[in-house]
């Protein structure tokens, strides 16, 4: 499933698109502790977080995440958007909580045995 599909299905607001939203999502990880995300997320994951500062872009880039979704309608900082554009990391905003959004994406990906 690509990012564009998830954007449409879940009514996400795109704040930085990268070169395209066709990037494939292979899984997901939810977390606000950067070391936890560094250690335990996988390449191709969509990262769900409440953090909005620019350091999330470096983590997503180092881990080759498909993109970042910020929850609870929180907006990314201006420099987060700039950095995400440079690093080609899509950043989206959802009005759902981390719990609800994670559940919806989990079902969309159909990864019940992950």
């Amino acid at each position: 499933m690509d990012i564009e599909t998830i954007v449409k299905e879940l009514n996400l607001k795109v704040r930085a698109a990268g070169t395209n939203l066709r990037k494939n999502i292979s899984g997901g990880y939810t977390g606000d502790l950067l070391s936890d995300v560094m250690a335990n997320s996988q390449e191709g994951d969509i990262w769900i977080t409440r953090q909005v500062h620019q350091n999330i872009v470096a983590v997503a880039s180092l881990k080759d995440h498909a993109g970042i979704i910020i929850v609870n309608s929180c907006e990314p900082a201006k420099d987060t958007i700039e950095k995400a554009a440079q690093e080609n990391i899509p950043v989206m905003v959802s009005d759902l909580s981390a719990f609800e959004l994670t559940g919806k994406i989990y079902n969309l990906l159909g990864k019940k045995d992950r």
Binding site: L34, S35, Q51, N55
Partner: peptide, 16 residues
């Protein structure tokens, strides 16, 4: 508040 300082850094390094 930025999500750093969870006390996981050195143990992550040791793990990897």
């Amino acid at each position: 508040e930025m999500g750093f300082g969870a006390g996981m850094g050195l143990s992550n390094i040791k793990r990897y």
